[in-house]
């Protein structure tokens, strides 16, 4: 990233998700050109057109599935030019009960939330490290802070992604490149449609987008989108396991 904190070009992975498109638009409104990556080319084009009409920035589309054998590493190596910033919003909540019954359902959740995004960020990190600049931002989840019966398959994958980002940040610290971990709590999106969410703890995709853009600019390390979630997750982590295992939260 250039010294004046100007983000010239940003890559958004998972750009067709509600949070992904909000982040992309937030970056475009700051005048940043975009590379949008997502699985479905038709939906990717719809999001790219929307951002072009609204902001006039240059947008390129990159069809990419993190479930590919190489985890999208091919995309990371092929991007030209290499972006100043990369944001990964790829994720899948899945259905906890289905994941308990069916190994392939669990595998899809694990792959989509951990293996794919981690391999992708790892491949990008190699280019950022070699260049000695740039910010990688990964959207993880508060669900990764402690495994709970209600969503531990998703939570464990997010925990893996959080740990991966932490290690990557550690590795890149001396290089000039930087890694941001963003943990939204509940967000009203397609992923959570139909769920009963507690209003004061639930944000909009635009709120996550603002937090992500700000965290990138300030090169923050770990960001909870709503501060109250930091306290909630701290409390949850502090409960002794002997008691925790009997709780239903």
């Amino acid at each position: 990233m250039p010294a004046n904190n100007d983000i010239g070009l940003a890559l958004v992975l998972g750009a067709t998700s509600d949070i992904g498109r909000a982040i992309a638009l937030g970056l475009a409104r700051e005048g940043c050109d975009l590379q949008l990556a997502g699985r479905d080319p038709a939906r990717l084009k719809a999001e790219a057109d929307d951002i072009r009409v609204r902001t006039g920035v240059a947008v390129t589309e990159h069809a990419c599935d993190v479930l590919n054998a190489d985890g999208g590493a091919g995309l990371a190596e092929a991007l030209d030019p290499c972006p100043d910033v990369a944001v990964c919003v790829v994720g899948l909540l899945g259905d906890q009960q289905a994941s308990e019954r069916d190994g392939s359902a669990a595998q899809l959740v694990m792959w989509t939330n951990y293996v794919g995004p981690a391999l992708l960020m790892g491949a990008l990190a190699a280019r950022f490290e070699a260049r000695g600049s740039g910010v990688l931002a990964g959207v993880s989840s508060v669900a990764g802070d402690r495994g709970r019966a209600t969503n531990y398959v998703y939570g464990s994958a997010k925990a893996g992604f959080t740990a991966f980002l932490s290690g990557l940040r550690n590795r890149l610290a001396a290089s000039g490149a930087h890694v941001v971990t963003v943990k939204p709590g509940f967000v009203r999106t397609r992923m959570t449609e139909g769920m009963r969410l507690p209003g004061p703890l639930t944000g909009a995709p635009e709120e996550v987008a603002r937090a992500v853009v700000e965290a990138i600019r300030r090169r923050r390390d770990v960001v909870y989108v709503r501060r109250v979630w930091r306290a909630i997750m701290l409390a949850i982590r502090l409960v002794p396991e002997r008691l925790f295992k009997r709780l239903r939260i």
Binding site: A46, E47, D50, V53
Partner: peptide, 18 residues
């Protein structure tokens, strides 16, 4: 409200598609 995308704007004719 999930259909919130703008699709095209022609600055010559002023036609917005959304």
């Amino acid at each position: 409200l999930g259909l919130g995308r703008m699709q095209a704007f022609d600055a010559d004719t002023g036609v917005l598609t959304c």
